[in-house]
Amino acid sequence: MANEKSNLKRSTRVANGILSVVFSVISLAYVYPLFIMLVNSFKKKAYISRAPFTIPLPGDANWTRMFVGTDNYATGIQKTEFPMAFVYSLVITVLSVFVILLCCSMTAWYINRVHSKLSKGVYALCLFSMVVPFQMVMFTLSKIANVLHLNTPLGIVVIYLGFGAGLAVFMFAGYMKSCPIAIEESAMIDGCNPVRTFFSIVLPVLQPTYVSTAILEAMWIWNDYLLPYLVLDLKKYKTIPIAVQYLKGGYGSVDMGAMMAMLVLAIVPIIVLYLCCQKYIVSGVMAGAVKG
């Protein structure tokens, strides 16, 4: 019996060892596209489409032909005004997420504690808006944004609040259902008005949901392409995805060198951020899924 058990353990150990090796190989294959992108961003543009998998090494015959140093980055930055796009993306994302968190947590608390037709209607609309595809509203939305002068990085925050409200209200409301109401009640009996009760009692309790909602909304807004493309005044403001897509130009010819360099610049900050706050990002996704 004891022998059988240790045999079993050994076979599991061997199986796990093999699995580790297999997954290591798959992981390498998984990051390979990113690696190729990085390599290509230093190659002459003619060789990117023709030989994307060739890696020039110093001393190699390919090296002098293919390697262009940081030229692609210089052209790319000059063509896309990448630093400004980065700033606009950052401003829009940070402001929108902040406004969404503040307004939607307040709304969610209200509809959870007040059982009225208004509350029910708001909640149902929020759920509905999460499913509706953007194409349904894109034409009219871009017209309205124009008429109301919401085509600036500040104005678009209003639209993101409207569009992101569904997910955020849903997340907050889901969490609040499980929060005890007793503390709030005693605070209000002691003379707190609803505003103070919300900010000093409810808000601290909601902290984990703030983090996970912020992550989900930020992932969406930072990467969003079509909404800002249709809403923003593109002569003045471009976000990163818009700047990247703009490299394509009107006639379908793309400077692949500049493209690769801009892709690297777009991806690197995200990956650095991810490796720093991985714990929060992953638990944010999990929290979102549980509520979903």
Binding site: C104, T107, L141, I144, Y160, A165
Partner: peptide
């Protein structure tokens, strides 16, 4: 508590939806 979110929701979703 409700009006700011709902005003933005109307501008960003509800009106464009019905109008569309």
């Amino acid at each position: 508590f409700v009006l700011p979110t709902m005003a933005a929701f109307a501008i960003g979703f509800l009106v464009p939806f019905v109008w569309g």
